[in-house]
Simulated assay, not measured.
Amino acid sequence: MTLPARITLRTVTSLLVISLLAFAVISAMPSDPVAIAIRAWNLPSDGATVAGLRAQWELDRPFIERYGSWLARFVRGDWGISFRTGEPVLAEFLQRLPLTMTMALSGLALAPLLAVPLGFFAALRPSGLIDRATRGLAVFIQAVPSIWLGLILLYVLGVQLRWIRPFTRDWTGLILPVALIALHSLAVLTRVYRRDLLEVTRQPFFRTALAKGLTRSAALWRHGHAHALYAMISAFRAEASWAVGSTAALEVLFGLPGIGQFLVESIAARDYPVLQAYVMVVAAWLLVLNAGVALCLGWLGPRPA
Rank of each mutant, 00 (worst) to 15 (best):
M1P: 10
T2I: 00
A5T: 11
L9P: 02
R10L: 10
R10I: 01
V12Q: 05
T13L: 14
T13Y: 02
T13F: 12
S19V: 10
S19D: 07
A22T: 11
F23D: 05
V25H: 05
A35S: 15
P44V: 09
S45H: 08
G47H: 08
G52D: 04
R54H: 02
Q56C: 00
W57F: 15
R61P: 01
P62G: 06
F63R: 10
E65N: 05
R66S: 02
S69V: 05
F74W: 14
V75F: 07
G77W: 09
D78P: 06
I81T: 15
I81H: 01
E92K: 00
E92H: 00
L94I: 07
Q95G: 13
L99V: 12
T102E: 13
L105E: 00
L108A: 04
L114Y: 05
A115G: 08
P117T: 04
G119C: 09
F121I: 13
A123Q: 07
L124F: 12
P126Y: 08
L129T: 13
I130S: 06
D131F: 06
R132G: 11
R132A: 12
R135Y: 11
G136P: 12
V139Q: 15
I141P: 01
Q142W: 10
Q142G: 12
P145S: 00
I152Y: 02
Y155D: 03
V159K: 05
L161W: 15
I164G: 03
R165Q: 14
F167T: 09
D170N: 15
D170V: 04
G173R: 05
A179G: 08
L180P: 03
A187N: 11
V188Q: 14
T190D: 10
V192F: 11
R195N: 14
L198T: 05
E199K: 08
T201V: 11
T201N: 04
Q203F: 01
P204F: 04
P204S: 12
T215C: 03
R216H: 13
W221S: 10
H227G: 00
A231F: 03
F236W: 14
A238M: 13
E239C: 13
A240I: 02
A243V: 11
A243Q: 01
V244Y: 05
S246V: 07
S246R: 14
T247H: 01
A249M: 13
A249Y: 00
E251I: 05
L253E: 00
F254A: 02
Q261C: 00
E265G: 10
S266E: 07
I267R: 03
A268H: 09
R270N: 06
R270V: 06
P273E: 03
P273H: 03
L275R: 01
A277H: 09
V279M: 14
V282Y: 07
V282N: 07
V282W: 03
A283G: 13
A284F: 12
W285Y: 15
L286Q: 11
L289T: 15
G292A: 14
G292E: 06
V293E: 08
V293M: 06
L295P: 04
W299S: 04
W299D: 01
P304K: 06
